[in-house]
Design a protein around this nucleic acid. Sequence first.
RNA 1: AGGCGGGUAGCUCAGCUGGGAGAGCGCGGCCCUUACAAGGCCGAGGUCGCGGGUUCGAUCCCCGCCCCGCCUACCA
Length: 873
Amino acid sequence: MGDLSDRYDPASVEPRWYREWESRGYFGADPAAAKTPYSIVIPPPNVTGSLHMGHALDNTLQDILIRYKRMDGANALWVPGTDHAGIATQYVVERQLAAEGKTKEDLGRAAFLARVWQWKAESGGTIITQLKRLGASCDWSRERFTMDPGLSAAVREVFVRLWEEGLIYQDDYIVNWCPRCQTVLSDLEVEREERDGEFVYIRYGPLTLGTVRPETKLGDTGLAVHPKDRRYATYVGQTLEVPSVQGIVSIRVVADEAVDPAFGTGVIKVTPGHDPVDFEIGRRHGLPVRTVIGFDGKMTALAGPYAGLDRFECRRRIIEDMQALGLVERIEPYRHAVGLCYRCKTVVEPLVSTQWYVNVKPMAEVALAAVRTRKIRIVPRSWTRTYEHWMKNIRPWCVSRQLWWGHRIPAWYCAADGSVHVSRTDLSACPDCGGAVRQDDDVLDTWFSSGLWPFSTLGWPEETSDLAVFYPTSVLVTGYDILFFWVARMAMFGLRIMGDVPFRDVYIHTLVRDAEGQKMSKTKGNVVDPLAFMDTYGTDAFRFTLGALAVPGVRDIRIAEDRIEGYRNFANKIWNAARLVLANLEGYAPERTRRAHLGIADRWIRSRLRATVKATRRALDRYRFNEAASIVYQFMWHEFCDWYLEIAKSRLYQMGDPVARAAAQRTAVEVLETTLRLLHPFMPFITEELWQRLPHSGESIMMAPYPKPARGTHDAAAEGEMASVIAIVGAIRSIRSESRIAPGVEVPVIIRPADAAAAARIGETGALIASLARARLEVVPGAVRPPHSAVAVTADAEVYVGLAGIVDLEAERQRLAREIERTAREVAQLESKLGRAEFVERAPAEVVERERGRLAEQHARHAKLATSLGALE
RNA sequence: AGGCGGGUAGCUCAGCUGGGAGAGCGCGGCCCUUACAAGGCCGAGGUCGCGGGUUCGAUCCCCGCCCCGCCUACCA
């Protein structure tokens, strides 16, 4: 085939094959198929988002697994889909409106939602197209969206059930409020950031206390000290009349364990309306909530003269006013953590309001047990601790959001009798009194619907065959950043609703950082676009890079461009190896060759292939993507290309010896074809393109069987002989290189085998050695070093390279001296080790034996080299 | 504060149950040898953070320390 260019051009191959696979229906799974099910649900990306590095890694790994299992005979299903991403999507559309000078209130709820749906229609296809570009073999006929009718029905069903079971309830509680987004945030949605602030010591009559939030003083309804703090015992229970910016105020002193007597003055002010700890203290002691900061982040009417001020402006003003009144004892600089909205980074305001909660505690216990009993296996296992810690300390999950985009809470309020009704169907009248009802304005936290993803996508609450066959899913692949947000919630919901784990394995991978190890973010401007990498280096090279970087561990990986370039070169290497093979297939007739015709190299590469197949499968089975990648890489490049093809070339060109040629052809084709299948999950496109051109059976590599270790191909003898060849050839090449012998010049070489067995081996492989080392070879048992020759010693031979007229005596002396020194060090080390009685007595016999063998070998080597050096004169 | 993880070749990192220190890139030398210069061959380069301990033997296990990350947290 002379029509292959000498460079692999991904752009001309990739789109063609993806279309082909898709149109032939290879991605689809059939629940009725009589095969072992293997299923994955995609972590749904934001519907209006675009592919970033994290997605690329996540989905490449999933595709590797699903392609591997599909080839390996499983009924493989990969369910794709997208998430409505409530707050994120709403935020984007709100910004679009702002650019037009409008707000969502200007549009009203219905029109705003229409606008979001429109935006979804416009941009929702982007990420799907990009996933296809990546080669993701998802079953697109099963694509889902969290706000599809079916999935919305699942959300409502779960909400109602949990309500009926008393696990969902409403509560007046202190929440994390984002004054900018105008919504409550779950604890997980609040980011912590260290900031410099001021610690202000304020006088409260006889007591002094420190605070970083003096403006909340206006909402104080108590003071608290530790119950065992003797300093303040006399004040506990008293109501103090203290001067303040609002005149004399009455304030009660309570004793509470939450106070740390060693911090500050040991006295705290209690502001139940604006601090979570204070809220709890207030509840314990019956202190009233006094809300002085509103949902807009401004001071309320209760703040008296400060009403209407921004909370931070109020802080400055109140400090000044207190200083004027002599109420400030001192101010110290103070660094502390503030809570920020994960979306817009606005400082979160703790506020009391009515919200919907899920009592996750009982579900968490079950989900915790599932991991402990290994019904869910977390890989790598180190994440189980983190998971356990979180599950054990879990608090009620606030699920209502004051947003418009999302699943509206299925609760209706009756204006007439004040009753609340949670219902599977929309209500138009109060079931109790028939009065008018109004649905709750809020929507559910995005993670509520994604928590149902493993079963809602398979059709639940309908009893579908998909659900019966593919649930629980086989593995969930995701980054550690959403272990709590998502993985833990799926575990809880799956066990509660389905009565079974949502997935058997969870493979947690790391995050992708830039080359400097920085987290990628739009604001930092260091976001690298995976599409650009695919354009420049090809999708296969990019995927292979991600696979090779996917180390089991918690250390984040850096995307390094030179690495991708290296694997681009790898793709090119494969391409050219295939070119060589394809160009020499004329008259290929595998049925006419027999095992007996196979040469050493043929047997060797087949034996190595077997080991490679075994190791690759083992690595993939354990989610060691990097190992699998490196094993195949090593084999393909450094064994198949560097040695086998180099050796096979001469036979492939040898039209005069059809038997030898056929054996080489057959081996080259079979090994290459198998390696392509082995590589396919990592590099789907190039492997398909080449596989199609090679002799093969079946219509596509992606539906061909994944290689299994071929029986009868393990060949210790051939591996031993090739190891000997490689060592001798390496020794000769090394001498050639150091002695500056031009590559074209043939050198005379005399080989002295170490023993009869070695002589036999080298007798078999002599011609091979000669051609690989460009040598005129003589095998002479008991040979002495000829004059003007350089010497090398391998495990089973002494090698004399004749350098008459070329050899530089002094250079050779130095080379030998270095070699001898190295060997002597080795010998000394081994001798001291073996000289210790404890080692010989207590180490396992095989270890001692191996060390003895090595010593003998090095000893002999040392002696031979020393002799040679002596003979140099 | 607690938890987790990292410190191995110039750079980025592997090193799975303790027993010969590896890869890629980079670097130096020689080669455009008809599959591939996105290539071939040869080579240099490491006190495995520091100090103890366990062990016949430690990059690996234990303790302490020094740096660097990350996550969780109601010290106002």
